[in-house]
């Protein structure tokens, strides 16, 4: 399926919706898994996905991921919450949608999202709050996480002087991280209209 502008906007809308519904109560990893599930579904289907379908999909993905990831079932999302939207008909559309998504993904869920690593990496460097980025599927989750944290913390990107030593456990190389960091830098510079500020960017990038 073509990744049109409508779909891109629709996807962004879904992600914003999921992030909003996840507050409060759901874990970050739950939302991340849902986003990844949505992406994987969209990359698998051949036919156009309507706006209406996207709305159903965002509920379905978040429902499946909270069922696998949360230890306390988020029933508040059902009791007249967003999940009941799909469930108030006799034809059990949530059940149908969940079956459709899971079968389309052949019951393979993405368990390891960059999210698992970002929390860990960020805590290793600082106790401060940090901003959150969104992933790509081109790199391994741990590398994306480290890159996001490095950019987010304004470490010395240009001079490549950041130290990967705190992340030894993750077994990643500087080259892997650098490729994402520089990708971000180019994009960031372009988005700033090539008027790069002297200071470092305030927010972590949206990967």
């Amino acid at each position: 399926m073509k990744f049109t502008k409508e779909l891109k906007d629709g996807r962004r809308g879904c992600i914003n919706w999921m992030l909003k519904k996840a507050e409060p109560g759901l874990r970050d990893s739950t939302v991340f898994m849902a986003i990844h599930m949505l992406d994987k579904y969209l990359s698998t289907v051949k036919e156009e996905v309507s706006v209406d379908k996207l709305k159903k999909l965002r509920v379905t993905c978040l429902s499946i991921s909270s069922k696998t990831e949360e230890s306390n079932f988020p029933s508040h999302l059902w009791d007249d919450g967003p999940f009941s939207l799909l469930d108030n008909t006799e034809d059990m559309s949530l059940h149908k949608m969940e079956s459709e998504v899971l079968e389309k993904l052949d019951w393979e869920l993405c368990w390891i999202t960059p999210w698992e690593f970002t929390d860990y990496c960020a805590t290793k460097l600082s106790s401060k709050d940090y901003d959150k980025g969104i992933n790509t599927i081109a790199h391994s989750p741990s590398v994306i996480a480290v890159a996001a944290v490095i950019v987010g913390f304004n470490l010395k990107i240009a001079d490549m002087q950041y130290d990967l030593e705190p992340f030894n456990l993750l077994n990643i190389t500087q080259g892997q991280v650098q490729s994402i960091v520089s990708e971000y830098q180019v994009e960031h510079a372009m988005s700033q209209g090539r008027q790069r500020r002297k200071g470092r960017p305030q927010r972590a990038p949206a990967f």
Binding site: S63, I64, K67, T68, F73, W78, F83, D87, M92, L94, H95, M97, E98, S99, L102, D106, W107, E108, L109, W111
Partner: peptide
């Protein structure tokens, strides 16, 4: 008494076995 989609245990067990 209200249907809420597929049972979490089934989703967990099947996705784990698929892995």
């Amino acid at each position: 008494g209200k249907f809420e989609g597929i049972h979490p245990n089934l989703i967990r067990e099947v996705t784990i076995l698929r892995r």
